[in-house]
Amino acid sequence: MAFSTRLVTALIGAYLDLTLRTVRWRLVVDPSAQAVIDGDLQAVAVLWHEFLPFGPALWREAIRAGNPRRLHVMVSRHRDGQALARLFARWGLEVIAGSSDRVRADGGTRPKGGATALRRLLALRDQGAVLGLTPDGPRGPRRVPAAGAAMLAARTSLSLLPMAGATRPALRLRSWDRMRVPLPFARGVLVYGPLFDIGADRHAGGDEIVRAALDGVARIAAEALGRVDD
């Protein structure tokens, strides 16, 4: 990774360190999600790519609750994914290299990236870890689950935990995902939605189940701050 990229990553990390500590957070936790936060239940944590800056704050609450499980997040093998890996390491989040675009919609995996990542996910599941995915990452389109994302999560045989966050005020980037960036000393909300399962019919509507759940928690986060989700 080039020095300039490392410098930018370090600056972003320092900014988020400051911001996430100064935001006045309110938690919205579905009763079914509490067992995951407390560490009593494994799950696959899912959130739209635009909410990645909220990821450390979302999992920090689980750590505060005494959760001994590590969160392992799948990121792209591209440069953006490498930068995210460095950022996540600041908050104790582990990274799995390999992105959802390496998984075929018919349920198989391509020989590079996806198959290795899937084996790693299954091994981590057996070790008791909590897994993390951004179904519309790494390149979008925004809020459209990539082909095979539901299958990849379902193969772990774990429930999925939809998450989202919001602050007021906040910045919206002009990136493909319209990423939301919290501002220091803002009011914020972290949402942990109801657990759900893809089931055996994951290839017939599974991605739409994921989309509906993630849009739902995004809407809850926005409405908690008196805004309309967009």
Rank of each mutant, 00 (worst) to 15 (best):
G199Q: 01
A89S: 13
Q127Y: 09
P141Y: 01
A35Q: 15
A33F: 07
G128H: 10
A33Q: 12
A213R: 00
L195Y: 10
V103G: 03
S4E: 10
D101L: 10
S4M: 11
V23K: 01
M151C: 08
V191N: 07
I209L: 00
A57M: 05
D136Q: 05
G113N: 05
A105L: 09
Q82G: 15
A33V: 13
L58N: 09
G92Y: 02
L11I: 10
V181Q: 09
V73G: 07
Q82F: 05
D136A: 06
E208Q: 02
R139C: 09
G205C: 00
T19C: 10
W176V: 13
R168G: 04
R77I: 10
A221F: 10
P162M: 06
S157C: 11
I63N: 12
P194Q: 15
G205F: 00
V144G: 01
D126K: 15
A123P: 09
A170G: 07
F88E: 04
G165T: 06
H203V: 07
T167L: 00
A83Q: 14
A154W: 00
A150I: 01
R64C: 13
T116R: 15
R24F: 14
R187H: 12
A45I: 02
T19D: 05
R64E: 15
V189G: 06
G39V: 08
T19V: 14
A117T: 03
P53K: 02
G206I: 00
G140D: 04
H72T: 06
T22H: 07
P141V: 05
R120T: 13
G137D: 07
T22S: 13
R110M: 11
T109L: 13
D106W: 04
W91D: 12
L52I: 14
S159A: 15
S32N: 14
D201Q: 00
G107M: 07
G226W: 08
L161F: 06
T156H: 02
L161N: 04
Y15N: 03
L225H: 10
A45D: 01
P194S: 15
A164N: 08
A129M: 14
V191R: 04
A2F: 09
P141M: 03
A115K: 10
T9W: 02
A117K: 07
A14E: 06
P53A: 02
G193M: 08
D80T: 06
V189L: 11
T167N: 00
A14Y: 04
D201W: 00
D215S: 03
D126V: 08
A117L: 02
L133P: 03
L225T: 06
L133C: 04
L87T: 07
P169L: 13
Q82I: 13
V46L: 09
A154T: 01
V29M: 08
